[in-house]
Every structure is written in C-alpha cells, then in structure tokens.
Simulated scan of single mutants.
Amino acid sequence: MIIGIDHIGLATHEPAALAGPLAALGLSHTDAGVALTYQVGCQFWSDPRRRTQPAVEIVSPLASDSTVTRHLATRGPGLHHVAFRVDQLDAEVNRLRREGFSSVDDRPHPGARPGMRVRFLYLRHPSSLLVELVEYAPA
C-alpha cells in the first residue's frame, strides 16, 4: 500500500547552489547519503517544524555514467522523480506495473538513507513521470 509521498527528487550538477534557495523556502538540510547503485549523492531537506511533510531530495551525479548524468544531459536540472513510501515494495511494483508503469529496476536496491530499499518505475504517457517506491526497514 502507498503510505504517502516520501520526497520529491530534484536533479542538479550543483547541489550546493540550492542551499540558499531551499533555506529561503523554510527548509533545513536534515540528512544526506549515497545511493551507490545509481552513483548519486543525495541531500534531504525538510521543514523542521513539520517532520511528517515530504522532503526535497537533491540528487547529483557521482560519476560520468550515472543515470542522473544522462537525465541532466537530456532534460537539464529540475524535477527528477516523485518518491512514494510503501509498506510492501514488491507488491506495489507489481500493482503499478498492472496499471501501466514500466519497471526501471529489475530488483530493489539500497537507497541513500539507512534501511531504505527502492525501485524506480516510469510512466511515459501522459506525463513522462519517474516514480521511486521507497520501503524502510522496521526500526
């Protein structure tokens, strides 16, 4: 089941340049990590007064052949994906595939946060939407 929006991913080659604008929007840098499978660095920003709100994730390539590098070359910086938190990752992937989403990943991968497992899906039409499904290990 989809629990809610976990974060909104923004792609950029210049993550440090977003610190000022995100702070002006009332967001604070809360945590960061690396998703090695995707070769990306990730910074998470959120409103410290509203911890239940979705975070903004700044995604930047760590290698020239990163999937985000290709995205930036073809589409430029900006919105990369919307991530939904789920309680059963595999079941939600199967359900969304039946609804017309294409699987980008063939299996779950570790995310940028501890205990995070992720898979990406893509919906070409009508919006060219990249979705990340996020499952956290029990605390």
Rank of each mutant, 00 (worst) to 15 (best):
M116K: 06
E99Q: 15
P138M: 01
E14W: 09
R85A: 15
E132C: 03
H81S: 02
D65F: 03
H71W: 15
A17S: 12
L22F: 09
Q43L: 11
L72W: 06
H13W: 13
P110N: 14
R95D: 07
G111E: 08
G78H: 12
H109D: 00
I3A: 14
D105K: 05
V93N: 02
T69P: 00
A17N: 06
G115L: 01
A91P: 11
E135A: 12
D90T: 00
Q88A: 15
P126R: 12
I2R: 09
L18E: 07
P114Q: 10
G9K: 10
A24T: 05
C42L: 11
L62R: 05
L36M: 11
R98S: 14
S128E: 15
C42S: 03
D47G: 03
Q39D: 11
G4D: 13
H109V: 03
S128C: 15
R124N: 14
S128W: 14
P77D: 08
R119M: 01
A23Q: 06
H109M: 07
I58H: 00
R70C: 11
L133T: 02
H81M: 02
G100H: 07
E132W: 06
H7S: 00
P48N: 01
L129K: 08
V40I: 10
P61H: 05
I5C: 14
S128D: 15
G20V: 11
G41Q: 08
P54Y: 07
V86G: 11
P15D: 03
I2Y: 03
R124K: 13
G78Q: 07
V86A: 12
G26I: 07
V56N: 11
T37K: 01
G100S: 10
S66Y: 08
V93R: 11
S64Y: 06
M1C: 11
V131W: 00
V40L: 09
R50T: 08
H125I: 10
R119N: 13
A73N: 10
F84H: 13
Y136T: 05
R119W: 08
H109E: 00
Y122T: 10
P15S: 14
R117S: 15
I2E: 15
L27N: 10
G111Y: 01
I5A: 15
V104Q: 02
L121H: 06
R85D: 04
T69R: 03
I8Q: 12
R113T: 06
D106Y: 03
V56H: 01
